[in-house]
Computed example of a mutant assay.
Amino acid sequence: MENYTYNSFMLQLEALNISKDSVYPVFLFFFIAYIFIMFMNAGIACLVCIDKSLHQPMYLLFCNLSLNDILGNSIMVPRLLSDMLRPPSELLISYYECVVQAFTTHMFGAASHTVLMIMTFDRYVAICNPLRYAAIMTNKMMIRLTVSAWGVAFVLVGILLSLTIRLNRCRTVIMNPYCDNASLFKLSCENVFINNVYGLTFTVVLFTASIGSMVLTYTKITVVCLTSNNKSLNNKALKTCSTHLVVYLIMLISGFIVITLHRFPQYSDYRKYCAILFHIIPGSLNPIIYGVQSAEICKSLSKLSRSKSVLPSF
């Protein structure tokens, strides 16, 4: 018979299934990935803020993506690294910390979609309506797009977690190496039908809006490129849109793998690793794909390095 502990404020996390010989190599991999994510995303965000030539809508919107990658990894990965070096019996987390971790985890996933959606709008205006780009993508529009991206994600995730917080808990074991909404509401012995319905609706609405906007936008961009004889426009569209599309596909495929593996309990260990990689892989690749491949950012980095190397002599 299962023992129940009602509304306990200390929860037990489930450890990753790692052999003793593999603990330190896996720890080192995640640690290096975390440092790389923080350094690259913070570096590019600072570079965009410092260099006035990069104060363009595309790069300012990209800062939202860097901020999201920093947010999504800074709460989950350090805790995961410390837990890897502890025995399973000591993997305890307070309920409040668990809720914060779950909120940031889902906020990261939702904002990844909404931020990339507003970046899609920017690319659409730049390629399909270049003459009016400056008039449309004003500072006010930038603020509206940014607030909309984060606001929509915040409201959707806020409702998701609010429905879970209202439940009484009768279990204490989080069946995951970190906290998320599903792990939290599975602690309850109450009816979680509303949670399941909203969670499914949340996922369907977010993915439908995200994929739909991408398909519609890129269809229109393709039509414009095919009907235009402007090689400069076509080259610009190919370069900027292919970069954006690769970033989106990496995020989408990573998310789909995690969602699919949730339906197969026998692959729970694979699901745990994929859920962690959902944070790490996009966060590592985004600054490389979107930042380093940008000619303007490379020029800014080169200019900054030259200015640092030329020191005044006394």
Rank of each mutant, 00 (worst) to 15 (best):
N176Q: 14
P88H: 13
Y96G: 00
I118V: 15
G151Q: 11
V197T: 09
V155D: 05
T114Y: 15
G199H: 07
N129H: 11
N176F: 11
V100E: 12
V173S: 05
N168S: 15
N176T: 11
V157P: 04
G109S: 13
T172V: 14
S148Q: 05
N196W: 09
A149E: 06
M84K: 05
N196R: 11
V147R: 01
M141D: 01
C179E: 14
E97H: 09
N129A: 06
S188M: 12
F121A: 00
T114I: 08
N168E: 13
F202G: 02
V197N: 02
M117R: 00
R79M: 10
A110D: 08
N196H: 11
S112F: 01
M76G: 02
N195L: 05
A110F: 10
G158P: 02
A110K: 00
I93W: 08
I165N: 05
V192C: 13
R166T: 05
R171L: 12
V157G: 05
A102G: 14
S183A: 14
P88D: 10
N195V: 01
I93Q: 12
G109W: 12
M137S: 06
V205W: 04
T164W: 04
N191A: 06
G158V: 07
Q101P: 00
V152P: 02
Y124M: 03
M107P: 03
L184W: 11
C189L: 11
R169T: 13
L187P: 00
V115P: 00
M76P: 00
L187W: 10
T203G: 00
I118E: 15
V192Y: 09
T114S: 15
S183H: 07
M117G: 00
L145W: 07
P88S: 10
L163P: 02
T105H: 15
G72N: 08
G199F: 12
L91S: 08
Y198P: 01
A134H: 15
I194H: 01
S94L: 06
A149F: 09
F103H: 07
P177E: 11
P130E: 07
R169M: 11
M137D: 06
T164Q: 07
E90M: 13
L91G: 07
A209F: 13
K140F: 12
T172P: 02
V197C: 09
Y95N: 03
N139I: 04
L81P: 03
Y96D: 13
L184E: 10
I136F: 13
